[in-house]
Design a protein around this nucleic acid. Structure first.
Lengths: 328, 328
DNA sequence: TTGAAAGCGGTACCAT
DNA sequence: ATGGTACCGCTTTCAA
């Protein structure tokens, strides 16, 4: 069932049917109603491919997701699809590994599929090559980075101020006489770098200097964190509080400390289900993923309508205090 | 840059370029190499829309996901996209609420976008209307149900045998003299019904009859479960073990019991991160989501190649024993 | 081995 | 308000 069939059944031309399809006012009410009726009864829906070929845009957006198995990304995918769908757009999903050898290929494929824009969730390594192909992609179609920032022409970032949140957190910990805060992070992503910067700034603001030996990269798994904590204690690195740049890191630390019989403030980031589900419940920096995603989609849509949008939108992040902060 | 530009630059016709694009053997090596070289240097990629219009298929599959925010669905989305991508297919994501008023619209939209097939993750309510529109969708394009089963012509299901797993679990609990097992479930999905059936069968196999007052529907949130457990105790419903049809339900029960000071076996389902992250660690039925998703994609691809595939593929589920089973 | 040309299902401009 | 028609970029006969 195509536009020709509908036109024939209505005794009008395809141009008229097309007008009805596109809410063009230049159609008489009688004609419009007849066409609509026939479309209804034939259960006709126009092919978006043919439409895309004609107009040059598809109302499809590519959602490139690094680390799709992390709970955060998963949550984000749902929020973004929901927001895009509310705007009448379709989400074309692609997941990539964190090493992201294949960023270029994915972006090329998306371009080939004719997406109107691309959203990138999570950070890819900021290698020259990646930067180059992101910039190239940003030329073809608007590119919005969700949760990371790169100074690319044509790219827009939406992040939340985790740096500030960590700085404030350090101040709060200092207020409780915790001066040797361990910072566990999981890699070299933008979010991690921000949190590390916030950590350093917190120390500086308090008149101290952060000690690099308490800034530890570790795999985001319970076992890895457990091993890491043990090793630190063996090496004689002392600490009186722990921040994890992801909830899973904080939780791993908490479990390791529980095993050893130590108690201290443990703070995660993401305010995920894990934070509420652990025992005791984990204090965590809430990065408001839903707001982040909604904002990203808003930025995208504004940009698609040709409006000016800020290259970098920063939302706030704030501490959700729970057991592991109150009691210690 | 389109096929005409490439053809012109090569001094050949678009037909020849198209042949090269489609690995048609009827092209001389000289010509093929020249065309490939030009395509490379122009960084040309064919428009998949135009291709789709020409051929009638798009290598896109619609992934309809009920309850996208549940960790399981989230995980599944990642696995499925990965598997589809490995087969050269693109995932068109759509999330729907569990009430699923809009199933029909989503399916129609996917058809309009020209997807070659549809995957449905999670269960939609088995209303007549839903069944009808699923059947209609299954006529247009192969439909694969992941984690649920409906007897529809043209639809294929891939599930795992949670019923059997629960039956065996009941037997194991009876072996430990636990005869009053509470079953918390979260709704009326296929998976829930299967688990309830398994629960009943377990009792029957042991020569008992399951007591309906221990089969309780409850919202999948910690607070709701906590309230539910308290209420049961107030009402005088006694139980000596708990099964949750999702890890979050089991975890909620465990936390509620901890608060009261009770200890008993608590078993979840899904073997999610939650199970490993709780304290004590939760025993959980592993439903092997990755295998499930891979299998679903395999079924889909076989079907797309025109091969015969089973209408219902059932994988095994098995118990992952942890703290909450061993010690009690 | 190659080219010409008719679709695929729409959009949009130009007439009427 | 309506119809005619040239695209959009590619596939696929049919001829040569």
């Amino acid at each position: 069932m195509n536009i020709y069939d509908i036109a024939a059944k209505c005794g009008v031309s395809i141009a008229t049917v097309s007008r009805v399809l596109n809410n063009n006012p230049n159609v008489s009410n009688r004609t419009r109603e007849k066409v609509l009726a026939v479309m209804q009864e034939e259960n006709y829906t126009p092919s978006s491919m043919a439409r895309g070929l004609g107009t040059g845009y598809t109302r499809m957006v590519g959602l490139v997701c690094a680390a799709p198995h992390s709970p955060l990304s998963a949550e984000a995918i749902g929020y973004i699809e929901g927001a895009l769908h509310a705007e009448g757009m379709t989400t074309l999903l692609r997941t990539i590994g964190t090493q992201a050898e294949d960023v270029k290929q994915e972006l090329d494929e998306l371009a080939q599929q004719g997406v109107d824009a691309i959203l990138l969730v999570g950070s890819v390594p900021g290698t020259e090559e990646n930067t180059a192909c992101l910039e190239a992609a940003a030329c073809r179609a608007p590119l919005v980075l969700v949760g990371s920032y790169l100074p690319l022409t044509g790219a827009y970032s939406v992040t939340c101020d985790e740096k500030k949140a960590v700085t404030e957190l350090i101040a709060a910990l200092f207020g409780r006489q915790r001066r040797n805060v361990l910072l566990l992070h999981s890699g070299d992503t933008y979010a991690d770098r921000e949190k590390i910067a916030g950590y350093r700034e917190g120390y500086t603001a308090a008149g101290y200097t952060a000690d690099d030996q308490r800034i530890i990269p570790v795999e985001p798994s319970l076992d890895a964190v457990n091993a890491c904590i043990k090793q630190l204690l063996v090496k004689g690195v002392s600490f009186d509080a722990v921040i994890g740049t992801e909830d899973i890191l904080a939780l791993g630390a908490q479990k390791a400390l529980q095993r050893i019989g130590l108690t201290m403030p443990v703070i995660g980031c993401g305010n995920s289900l894990l934070a509420r589900c652990s025992t005791p419940e984990l204090t965590s920096i809430d990065t408001h993923p839903e707001a982040l995603c909604r904002t990203a989609v808003e930025v995208l849509c504004h940009r698609l309508r040709g409006e000016e949008v800020a290259a970098h939108t920063v939302l706030s992040a704030d501490l959700m205090e729970r057991d592991t902060f109150r009691r210690n």
